[in-house]
Design a protein around this nucleic acid. Structure first.
Length: 492
RNA sequence: CGGGACGUAGCGCAGCCCGGUAGCGCGCUUGCAUGGGGUGCAAGAGGUCGCUAGUUCGAAUCUAGUCGUCCCGACCA
């Protein structure tokens, strides 16, 4: 075995990194904290993006594009927002280089090309977008304004990890403006459900929808909604967020509209986003010690066909069969690759496509042709089956939905087995360290207790689930009265 | 920002202690065989040893500096 992977049990973090690198999703780049997203990984992102984009459009949103650079003064306007992002911003101070007179062949920043005002590479686009909205919104007739942007953003993180936290990442950010608070809240909740729908139905990953505690809120938001997913190592991962921003940005950027009654009012805002981080979630949720496992609905490649033959005569025979299969699959909207590369043998290909997580593999050789069958292997269970050639297309269509469902069921069973109710601090720490997963526990509702728990146990409140039942109890840490359980976990 | 590791061929590494002009495996090229789970044999191509300065007849190796990347923690999507 040339390409042995580190197992999850041996070293989960290393297993994760190896899957990304060896699976061909991404590579480290020459720039600290920034990665190259390779074609296989980028195709995955495109597939995710296409589905989400359609969902956004189906809910009335349109795409636009705003500048990469944000004037520093814009970022300052919303105080909480500025504070939240200030320490991780890349800053442009000059606009020109020149050849260094003291160092032949080297370039230096031209000190005469200093910008009047520094430009910040967007860590998020609220500021630049709300500055534009000021001019776009005059009347209640201009509302709601429902805009999304697909973009890259930069956050100068201390420590980065492939897909989970890179200095530059790709994402979408929705920024909407509304006439009333109710409508804005409804929008923020609607988009949370769009995200939940996407992650569950396309990524095959169950999520818990909830709201963040004030401590964990987005900088500048009045309410942050989130979807939380559970990874195979028992740590939680925030897969998407949607924020009700109140009138904070409208006030900061003076965005008012005229009501029907001819009165000036500040507009109400939301923003919501998911990023390439979702790819990290996908990898950690479904993959195994043999490699990646891609859910069929968004897999970069759904079916791979490996020919098995001796000599050109057999190869020609196989080619002919494969032509028909490829056409049949494509006609059914299934992506397929016929890998007839000569420099690798079948066994190598089998292992390679398992590493890449291609949901279905088809092998065809002389024996199969004689028997009128093809060999079909599914990545999730690694089962191999001989299928009558005539039934192949239908069978593959069945596998696409069955694998998708199986991955979801597996992830759901794992998640459900890892939500634990605890009623004492001892129990809390024990479950957290021995079992992991979500811990449902009473909390007194204070930021102080939340901080102490974080300090002592490294667990944070992931969310207060939507429609959380009220239940009288005592805080697991402080012993003070509590009205409901919240979900704690160690998180990425 | 603290702690740890590393930088030598496309990739993974050895050589460094004890200085003498660079090697192994994979991959790549060509040929023949092989082909139902990471092929075998043969012949080839490929490296200013991260960068800079110093010591020396001579530096991948010793000294000083410098740049960069990764991993583990605290902070964050």
């Amino acid at each position: 075995m040339a390409n042995e992977l580190t197992s999850r049990e041996t070293d989960y973090a290393q297993w994760y990194n190896e899957l990304i690198l060896k699976g061909g999703l991404a590579d480290y780049s020459a720039v600290r904290g920034c990665m190259v997203i390779k074609p296989y990984g980028y195709t995955l992102w495109e597939n995710m993006r296409d589905v989400l984009d359609k969902m956004f459009k189906d809910t009335g949103h349109v795409n636009a594009y705003f500048p990469l650079f944000v004037p520093k003064s814009f970022l300052e306007k919303e105080e909480g927002h500025a504070e939240g992002f200030a320490k991780e911003c890349a800053v442009v101070t000059h606009y020109r280089l020149k050849t260094d007179p003291n160092n032949k062949g080297k370039l230096m920043v031209d000190p005469e090309a200093k910008l009047e005002e520094e430009l910040i590479v967007r860590p998020t686009s609220e500021a630049i977008i709300w500055n534009a909205y000021k001019d776009w919104i005059q009347s209640y007739r201009d509302l709601p304004l429902l805009i999304n942007q697909w973009a890259n953003v930069v956050r100068w993180e201390m420590r980065t990890r492939l897909f989970l936290r890179t200095a530059e990442f790709l994402w979408q950010e929705g920024h909407t403006a509304h006439a009333t608070a109710e409508e804005a809240i409804e929008e923020a909740e609607k988009m949370l459900h769009v995200y939940g729908d996407f992650v569950e139905n396309y990524m095959a990953l169950p999520v818990i929808k909830g709201i963040k505690t004030p401590n964990e809120r987005f900088a500048g938001a009045l309410e942050t909604y989130c979807i939380e997913a559970l990874m195979q190592d028992g740590k939680a991962l925030q897969a998407g967020t949607s924020h009700f921003l109140g009138q904070n940005f409208a006030k900061a950027f003076d965005v008012k509209y005229l009501t029907k009654e001819n009165k000036q009012e500040f507009v109400w805002a939301t923003s919501w986003g998911v990023s390439t981080r979702l790819i990290g979630a996908l990898v950690m949720a479904h993959s195994d010690d043999q490699g990646l496992v891609m859910p069929p609905k968004i897999a970069p490649l759904q079916v791979v066909i490996v020919p098995i033959y001796k000599g050109p005569e057999q190869k020609a025979l196989v080619d002919e069969k494969v032509d028909g299969i490829v056409a049949g699959l494509k006609a059914n909207g299934i992506s397929v690759k016929y890998d007839d590369a000569e420099n690798t043998r079948p066994g190598w290909k089998f292992a390679e496509y398992e590493l890449k997580g291609v949901p279905v593999r088809i092998a065809i050789g002389q024996k199969d042709i004689e028997n009128g069958v093809v060999e079909v292997a599914r990545r999730d269970t690694k089962e191999k089956q001989s299928i009558p050639a005539a039934d192949l297309i239908e069978h593959v269509k069945f596998l696409m939905t069955d694998i998708q469902q199986n991955l979801y069921n597996k992830a759901l069973a794992y998640r459900d087995a890892h939500v634990t109710e605890v009623n004492s601090w001892e129990e809390f720490k024990q479950v957290l360290h021995e079992k992991g997963g979500f811990i449902s526990a009473h909390w007194d509702g204070t930021a102080e207790t939340e901080d102490k728990i974080k300090e002592e146990a490294k667990a944070t409140i992931r969310c207060i689930p939507l429609d959380n039942p009220l239940e009288a109890g005592v805080c697991v840490f402080s012993g003070k009265p509590s009205t409901q359980r919240v979900l704690f976990a160690m998180a990425y």
